[in-house]
């Protein structure tokens, strides 16, 4: 087997605040293979986003390391492209300019990068909106642009921090399909955080359940649900069973942390 694209080893993350120290991650280890979609679910505040930020290089772990294709990640890592929950598109750039941004930074000529961006625009069905500003687009359209922007930079890994949480149910479904389509074509590795167990089951090859804070790996499921995960699949018993199991695990952690709080009080 080849080297896993992402190797997170014994990550510990402690935040030091005025109120004392806050443990976000504790001995967190995880691997992702090339082309794999790994979804991470867990209670609020269990450290999911912290983990993603460490992989992106925005945060430095208190101890432990993350390897990208065998090399330790040090500092901001453009090969792990991030898609944010609030899109974070540059309001002063058009759709085309936003998507062409990564290539522009690398020195691509205007013609090159615009052509590239145009391809992604067509891929997600945003033709006609090349000159629009993010402020003129709906949430779903903006997230599509964000997806294109990340992809146009040709990262090895896609990091998704609840990217569809702000969208309505219909758009969310569409975006999920969109993502799967893109990923399957390009064989990108995806680390995907979500609160929605449904979403995790629809998207993932493997599903990771995180414990309550400080986050540890509580359980990992190999998602053997049949592809494509259409509505038919989503109403099968297998799906419901998996959902139940994951739900119970998460519930356990939520209750556990609540009782812990009560004990403290």
């Amino acid at each position: 087997m080849s080297v896993p694209v992402i190797q997170a080893r014994n990550l510990n993350m402690t935040f030091f605040t005025r109120k004392g120290s806050l443990g976000a991650l504790e001995d967190f280890s995880l691997e992702a293979q090339r082309g794999e979609v790994v979804c991470i679910v867990g209670a609020s505040g269990c450290g999911k986003s912290t983990f993603l930020n460490i992989v992106a290089g925005f945060l430095e772990p208190t101890s432990g390391q993350v390897l990208l294709e065998g090399d330790e990640i040090q500092g901001v890592e453009p090969r792990c492209g991030m898609i944010f929950q609030d899109y974070s598109l540059f309001p002063w750039m058009t759709v085309l300019e936003n998507i062409a941004f990564g290539p522009r930074l690398k020195g691509a000529s205007r013609k090159e990068r615009h052509q590239k961006a145009q391809r992604y625009i067509e891929m997600v069905g945003l033709e006609g909106f090349e000159q629009a500003y993010p402020g003129e687009l709906s949430g779903g359209m903006q997230q599509r642009v964000a997806l294109c922007r990340a992809l146009a930079n040709e990262p090895d890994v896609l990091l998704c921090d609840e990217p569809f949480a702000a969208l309505d149910a219909m758009t969310r479904q569409i975006m999920q399909q969109e993502l799967l389509h893109v990923v399957s074509e390009s064989q990108k590795t995806v680390l995907f955080i979500t609160h929605s167990i449904d979403e995790a089951l629809i998207l993932s090859d493997r599903l990771v359940v995180m414990s309550a804070r400080p986050g540890r790996v509580k359980a990992i499921y190999n998602n053997d649900l049949p592809q494509p995960r259409t509505l038919d699949v989503q109403i099968t018993d297998h799906f419901m069973k998996l959902k139940r199991e994951v739900w119970d695990l998460v519930q356990e952690e939520v209750m556990g942390s609540m009782t812990a709080l009560q004990r403290v009080k």
Binding site: A56, F58, V76, E77, P78, C80, G81, M82, F84, D86, S88, F90, W92, F101, G102, L105, K106, R149, A150, N153
Partner: peptide, 25 residues
Amino acid sequence: QALILAARNLGASHLQTIRYVVLPG
């Protein structure tokens, strides 16, 4: 700050971040 992070994530150097994000922002 998220925009600055997004730019850095896309590979922008400090100078590029200033030019493409901080200034127009």
